[in-house]
Design a protein around this nucleic acid. Structure first.
Lengths: 142, 142
DNA sequence: TTGTTAGATGAGAATGATTATAATCCAAGA
DNA sequence: TCTTGGATTATAATCATTCTCATCTAACAA
């Protein structure tokens, strides 16, 4: 069984990226636990092990990892960046009011109907979906 | 048949809002044509008729109209605001690369399955969905 | 019609997340 | 070990949006 370090070195090598210490700790911070993480929270976490790291480096590498498919961007057009390490296809539930995001399982999309209504040439190879509603807390407030 | 002005005055009155000239022209700019509009584009449009109007007023009133259900926010957690006058329930297709948004018709969501997988208390009374893919232009570039 | 006032507007400053810049640094192949 | 192109850091810059507050006006009452 490979060490976590060796696993990352191999991933980086496949993507043609230098396996720097900073990239290592950023990647591991996201992948260590399931969940959705902001650049700031990753920065705070990573800083404990590598105090000299810069916030710009965190941003740059999160974008890079997402571009290479090592991480997933929680919402591809959200106002603030969130990343997750879970690469299994799954959808998200978003609260319209507080913008909280959570995973939602289940096969509730009819892909055949969906692609029938999509315009010509629109690539829905692996459609990801965001469902908007009101989370429990916000619908209680009302 | 009511004039457009009278229609707006009545809507404003129902919401308890003063029917100012600025609100009138902002509302009409969005509702006049189907489509998705940014605050800047509405500002540019509205300025032609009302040169003294302020961008802040446009933002403030778009948010207000959305809060009162007179307009719809295209994507409730997008990085930049877009509004539309079409209040008929419909979903959106978003390009992951260029973030372009277009309407998509069709009943491709299985609401029963969806609510079965949603957490307790999550309000999905009228779930709106955003589907991510690659628009034709972006998937051609690849 | 006029007076009163709560709410609305306008101009510009402030905010906050993200990206750009440029000097320094280091991973990786020779 | 040496070389070099890519990586990192600190900070400035950006940009959409919101805030502030002085001024103004729509709406109701007299």
């Amino acid at each position: 069984m490979q060490s976590s370090h060796e696993q990352f070195r191999e991933l980086a090598w496949k993507c043609g990226l230098a396996a720097t210490h900073q990239r290592q700790v950023i990647y591991e911070a996201v992948v260590a636990m399931p969940g959705h993480y902001s650049p700031e929270s990753i920065f705070a976490e990573v800083r404990r092990r590598t105090p000299s790291i810069s916030l710009a480096t965190v941003y740059k590498n999160l974008r890079l990892f997402v571009a290479h498919g090592l991480l997933r961007e929680v919402s591809p057009h959200a106002s603030t960046l969130l990343v997750e390490g879970n690469l299994e296809p799954h959808h998200h539930l978003v609260c319209t009011r507080c913008k909280a995001v959570q995973d939602i399982e289940g096969d509730f999309i009819n892909y055949k109907k969906l692609s029938r209504h999509a315009p010509r040439g629109f690539d829905l190879t692996q459609p990801l979906v965001e469902v908007f509603g009101l989370c429990r807390r916000c619908s209680a407030k009302k």
